[in-house]
Amino acid sequence: MTSQTPVTDAALARFADAVMSIAHRIEPRGLEIPGRRHLTPREVLVLHEVAVSPGITATRIARGLGLQRSNLSATLHGLEREGLLAQTAATVGRGVGFHLTDQAQGELALVRAHRTERLRSALPDVLRDVVDQADVLARLADSIGDLPE
């Protein structure tokens, strides 16, 4: 397929299905971190959003994850209460943003180690091919944009 050839809906659907399957195999039901309670899939996603965009507002987190802001509020407050998130000035717009605490950064390191371990169970030649595309996939994630409200 050349850069001029349009990508079919079927090819995009197949790609999206593969991404969802990979995500589920890496973290099927949230995450268990020794010495702390279970992190839910939503909490892991929120921590990830804040990690990649320090100072992000609750509205942008909700939009990026496709959640109602009111539904996200309890998750944010819980993560703050547990010392994983702290409020800061928003980096875009005005208002309150969030950043990870040192404790959260340590726990996200454990999350990344868990993900790495799960991925290492794949065939080495497949991993080499996929890892070479990590930058392209990150650009894809950035270019998809926010979900509609």
Rank of each mutant, 00 (worst) to 15 (best):
V92P: 00
G78F: 00
R112W: 01
I22D: 06
L127R: 15
L108P: 05
R69I: 14
P34C: 03
A86P: 01
R69E: 14
L137T: 12
R120F: 12
L84N: 07
G95S: 05
V44I: 13
I22H: 14
S143Y: 15
Q68M: 06
L31P: 03
L47F: 02
A90H: 00
G106Q: 11
M1V: 08
L31V: 10
I144M: 11
L76Y: 02
G66H: 04
N71Q: 10
E149C: 04
E49Q: 15
T88E: 11
H114M: 06
R120M: 13
L110S: 09
Q4G: 07
R112V: 00
E149Q: 07
S3M: 09
A74D: 04
L47V: 06
R94V: 09
G95F: 03
V136R: 10
E149W: 07
E117C: 08
E32P: 02
T91N: 10
V50I: 04
S70E: 12
D129I: 11
T2Q: 07
A89K: 09
D17W: 08
A18G: 08
P124I: 05
D9T: 14
G95D: 04
R25N: 15
P6E: 03
I22F: 15
A13C: 06
Q133T: 15
V44H: 00
L12M: 11
D146C: 02
